[in-house]
Write a protein that binds this DNA or RNA. Structure first.
Lengths: 138, 138
DNA sequence: TATAGATTGAGAATAGTTATCAGAACGAGC
DNA sequence: GCTCGTTCTGATAACTATTCTCAATCTATA
């Protein structure tokens, strides 16, 4: 973990009022340490931590991802019934889902233009609109 | 089960080359017997069958929903990590997801207009575009 | 450094779903 | 209708992703 990654992670946690524990710093650094957005599953993040020789339990990875979401640092994306994906990019944007590898990536938001959206039924309001573009390898 | 429901169900199965077993007819009738589109989960369909005093095991409900999807009679919709939803409406259309009740309904397709969609990255093509409009009760 | 409260992690528990496989049901050909 | 190879069903076990439990550990603050 570089100094700049540690600093970025510390600030990221502080901004959300979360205690900078060793485990959270480890995971935060893997998520936003290089300033890039990232899409992970609990398993993939756990594997990344293990790979970096950082000891974090799987339960903590789950707890931490949930804490990050609750704190508004990440959002959960549903694309596949079997796993939950988490995204560090909090802006409203569509996703590419690669069906062959089950990977999730950002789709360029500026290339999506919805000119008309169905009205919310009476008694309800739109909380969010999820757009997932499923890709198949050609 | 009315005669017309039975006939509709039988035709529905025959059109996909599926054997009209008692269980499949029961479930098909609950799904398309009245000519309406329907959104179900395995559990909700199982409950509906039990409620109609039809004996179908939960395992068969799962097998059957999968068979209907493979045969192109239904499609699976992913909106919530915890359950799978199945839709009898095979046309391309957006969905409303009611966050408070976890219910899924069709959104009027003619009210959705996407004027611009991100290009598929090189080496990939768009398989489908899923649009889920999440609703919260006001 | 003492203390109150938050966090961690090993393992149990849970929910939704799939797998197993023996017996029942199906339908094509007689 | 009867036979027979194939398909389907369902009770139950197994599985996967995730959450829960709670004692031990860590953190922030005084």
């Amino acid at each position: 973990m570089t100094d700049i990654a540690t600093e970025r992670s510390t600030k990221w946690l502080a901004g959300a009022g979360l205690r900078p524990t060793r485990q959270r710093l480890t995971l935060a650094s893997l998520l936003v340490g290089d300033g890039q957005d990232r899409h992970v599953t609990a398993e993939s993040l756990f594997a990344a931590a293990s790979n970096a020789d950082e000891k974090v339990s799987l339960a903590t990875v789950y707890n931490t991802l949930r804490a990050f979401c609750d704190a508004g640092l990440m959002r959960e994306i549903t694309v596949d019934g079997s796993k939950s994906y988490f995204d560090t990019n909090m802006t409203d944007h569509p996703h590419f889902y690669w069906e062959d590898t089950a990977k999730l990536t950002d789709a360029p938001a500026e290339q999506l233009e919805i000119s008309h959206l169905p009205d919310a039924p009476a008694g309800a309001e739109i909380a969010s609109v999820d757009v997932v573009i499923r890709l198949r390898r050609t």
